Simulated assay, not measured.
Amino acid sequence: MGAEARVRNVTLREDLAQRLDAVLEPSGRSTAAAIEEAIELYVRDREHELALIDEAIASLAEGKAHSAESIFAWMDSWGTADELPPPEPDVDLDGR
């Protein structure tokens, strides 16, 4: 059996409610299902962001950081065919 559910009331702006209705109509999906999916995606993304922040704080506590050059090179590659992975820390704060 699925997880226990909790009722929440959600108020949407009228324009957003109309847009939601328009995209749901062809599929026959319910508003509740779409809102639950949207919240699931939001929570997943936010949990991931928070985990990355925790990793960055831990890295700083260990004296490791990223140079501006490595961050900018990574950011400059976003959306290109040669997109780089996130850089590893390349600055040792303890050895300044």
Rank of each mutant, 00 (worst) to 15 (best):
R46H: 12
P26M: 05
L60Y: 13
E25H: 11
R8C: 10
V43D: 07
P86N: 03
D76H: 13
E4F: 06
A56M: 11
A33H: 08
S30L: 10
A34C: 08
A58V: 05
D82K: 14
I57H: 10
L84M: 10
Q18T: 09
H48Y: 13
I39Q: 12
A58R: 13
A61R: 14
I35L: 15
G28E: 08
D21R: 11
A65R: 04
L50W: 11
E40D: 12
L16N: 08
P26W: 04
A81C: 05
E14I: 03
R44V: 03
S27Q: 09
L93A: 09
E14S: 12
T31L: 08
L24V: 05
S77I: 07
V7T: 13
E37G: 06
A61W: 02
L12S: 06
R44M: 11
S70Q: 02
S59D: 07
R44L: 08
S30A: 09
S67Y: 07
N9Q: 12
G95M: 10
T80H: 11
H66V: 02
R19F: 05
R29N: 13
A68C: 05
H66G: 02
I53W: 14
L20Q: 01
E83P: 02
I57S: 05
D90K: 03
Q18E: 15
A32C: 03
E62N: 09
R96N: 14
E4K: 14
D76Y: 10
M75E: 15
D76A: 14
G79L: 00
E55N: 13
R6A: 01
E62S: 09
V7A: 14
I71Q: 00
A81W: 07
S70K: 03
P86K: 11
K64L: 08
E69P: 00
M1T: 09
R19I: 01
A33L: 01
